[in-house]
Design a protein around this nucleic acid. Sequence first.
DNA 1: CTGAAAGCGCTTACAG
DNA 2: CTGAAAGCGCTTACAG
Lengths: 329, 329
Amino acid sequence: MPTIKDVAKRAGVSRTTVSRVLNDNGYVSHEARTRVVEAVKEMGYIPSAHAKTMRTKRSGVIGVILPRISTETASRVVNGIEEELAANGYQILLTNTQLKPEKEIQNIKLLKSRQVDGIILLATNRNQDLLETIADLSIPFVALGQELTGVTSVVYDDYHSAFDVTESFISEGHQQIGFIGVPETDHAVGFLRKQGYLDAMAKHNLPVKEEWIQDGNFSFESGYQAAKQLMEQAQVKPTAVFAVTDRMAIGALGYLKENQINVPSEVALFGIGASDLSKHVTPPLSTVDYFNEDAGQKTAQLILEQLTGKIIEKEKIKLNYRLIKRDSV
Amino acid sequence: MPTIKDVAKRAGVSRTTVSRVLNDNGYVSHEARTRVVEAVKEMGYIPSAHAKTMRTKRSGVIGVILPRISTETASRVVNGIEEELAANGYQILLTNTQLKPEKEIQNIKLLKSRQVDGIILLATNRNQDLLETIADLSIPFVALGQELTGVTSVVYDDYHSAFDVTESFISEGHQQIGFIGVPETDHAVGFLRKQGYLDAMAKHNLPVKEEWIQDGNFSFESGYQAAKQLMEQAQVKPTAVFAVTDRMAIGALGYLKENQINVPSEVALFGIGASDLSKHVTPPLSTVDYFNEDAGQKTAQLILEQLTGKIIEKEKIKLNYRLIKRDSV
DNA sequence: CTGAAAGCGCTTACAG
DNA sequence: CTGAAAGCGCTTACAG
């Protein structure tokens, strides 16, 4: 691998001059510039990003921490982030935590050791350890998906969207509404969405049976099992089911179809996520679009603002959403 | 940010000693070690990966170039790669080309400038420029998805799987079989799968009408349009349709259902990819499982072998596949 | 068992 | 317009 020294020698100039040509800053005579450009091309010279980073304290890389790499949501968010960041000359370094909270902290340190200029975390919890690690960090940081205290956060409107879904069921005449959630350690998906459901029910004076509330774990299978519980164990069977993710909703749909329970006439169904899947199952699943790409883009913009020093104080941004009603209701 | 110098001062030793403790190599007295470990903890010292890379010429990072980040296939492959690489102490740097061939070369250079120890490319074409760029590269390189001449490649068995799908239709009595492919610039998906289809037809002396062969572009919509062409334009209508990707197959399914064409009794349907989607549409789609995670893992293993110098000559690995027959046939 | 010094490949004041 | 020199934060012979 040729270095800047080799290029300098070949072009008959100093390293300083080569650097100036490469970065297009400072005065360089036309003739010198030409010789350098030529040498670079001839030698196939590629500057070392590490040396540059070390010297300038800027890597041009943003670290992105995902809970899991192979989910539609994550993919879309990353697309939004990537687009915005690439347009501004930044690259992404992706890591994933396999949903293990301890790996979040580990990954933050790893990214820091790689001198990333900022970190975006798709958050799934609000552990104290995590918050402390972030507080100790001296680089721009944005959390997406959970509101973290003291941290610039972009969040979906989990509460209101869940509220709206529930109210939409109610407005269609449903009174017994089942709920498939996830554990509340995931504050956004587990707690807030459930709260939206409960508050909507309460607002319309509809009692909620304990047995109507089931916990899943994001998987199809857990949605299937939750639906089974709902339909086989409950004294009063729900006429509508709200699952907080499309995957679980579709798992539930599988159970219902398997047992000849018609959707929507016997049980109406709603999910969240606007996944490709939701559009193509039969009947098409009603769901909530969280505009994940926009979320990624917005998050990237916040990082960029911090990077360019435009903002100092921590921001909280709540995103829009949209109910998509399809034949499952 | 504290550096190794600060730690050394605090611990009352030289940088050399700190380095030895950090990397656990060379002799260090128990006492000195203890002081260093303590200083590191107290100061929250995180070593600079860049400085280390620069000095050692090893970054511990493997670059992975994806055509698109938000596809199920890519996600699964990355999962397989990540798992294998992480287990061996390597990290991943992801980039994506947005399906633009010129960005493949650009990304290779970018990764090289970041001193990655190796590169994995999920390939979509076999351009001469690309091959030359790879040949000039002096680091381990593995292509996945296309057989690239002179490059260690891991490929799916596009030809035989397509052959088998077609023969499976034939064995069920189908004689008019439509085909939804992609342009042949994608040698694996465009050319080989079509060849498998054609050869299976030929083997059974079944003529193939030109109008039975349609090109899509991987999208649902293109599958929909292709099916429309197939069913509305063809003189002799197919009784079975083979789409080379699940997305296109499901697009086709959309068209068929919309037009009350029963699947499978009027038109049988097969895809490739074993996507989540395929399992959950109605009727469930028959498809081919390419075991993407295993593919990623195998690819990572090849990179690791090159990294540790176990192999020199270029390898070609063809992966297994499995037909999954569901109610769409 | 320990440390001084060189060097990885860049950029950036500084001096001319 | 140009270059010599210092320095970014590490590791690694080498010498003791």
